[in-house]
Write a protein that binds this DNA or RNA. Structure first.
Lengths: 114, 114
DNA sequence: GAGCAACGAGTCATAAAACACCCCTAATGT
DNA sequence: ACATTAGGGGTGTTTTATGACTCGTTGCTC
């Protein structure tokens, strides 16, 4: 995403939209906690401007900045919902589709290594 | 997060851990869908190496890359759970705490603007 | 309405993210 | 066993994110 970046031009609308949404949410969460940008940026170990860029939904901000923000806000738990394997319906189905249709009795027994 | 970055050195352990977790999940979701890094990177408009860095949990990867990945995987909906205002228990409580303890009858009536 | 803090935005310098190659090893399938 | 693909890791180059500083505006609070 840095650089002129292949994506920059071709980014689907939903990506930038989602980014704006995330920024707004972080901004809201911060205000609810009555913390200024300056204060929060300090706790995140970044500059106020970087936090500002995050809240403004710039896609070029690095992931560490987002995670730090969530951490400062006490919202890091929310990350556990991102691409959660057990909730990935499509993924689970496709995984199933990869399984062999019939199971042949193995000639050489595969043993777990322990 | 780019640069020597204030955070880089001081990042709390949970941040880097969460980043690793996200990377693993994206890797898993990709494999479930039987897509190679090369193929997925192309769809994301980034290089294979950048995707590799994301899957390896590097905090310096930009947010756009993550969002693009989720988009390609069809998991962009998961982002809606990030810092969701209605689920922010702490935030809602602190917001309440900001409300005045008593309501004085307004002398000048505040009207909604429409 | 005056003063002040918050915040967006601009500039400059610099470290580094992303690209574009490369090679190499280890799975994977035939 | 062999060919092929996947994916990690390295190098060099270009673009840019971040930090440090500043200015100007907005919007509180008194």
């Amino acid at each position: 995403m840095t650089r002129c970046s292949l994506s920059k031009s071709a980014l689907p609308a939903t990506v930038t939209e989602n980014m704006v949404r995330i920024g707004e949410r972080i901004c809201l969460a911060r205000k609810r906690r009555s913390i200024s940008q300056a204060e929060m940026a300090t706790r995140m170990f970044v500059t106020r401007k970087t936090l500002s860029r995050l809240e403004n939904g710039e896609t070029s901000v690095s992931l560490g900045v987002l995670l730090s923000a969530l951490w400062v806000l006490g919202l890091e738990r929310d990350i556990l919902d991102l691409a959660a394997p057990e909730k990935d319906i499509v993924g689970l189905q496709m995984e199933k589709a990869l399984l062999p249709k019939r199971i042949h009795t193995a000639k050489t027994i595969i043993e777990p290594d322990f």
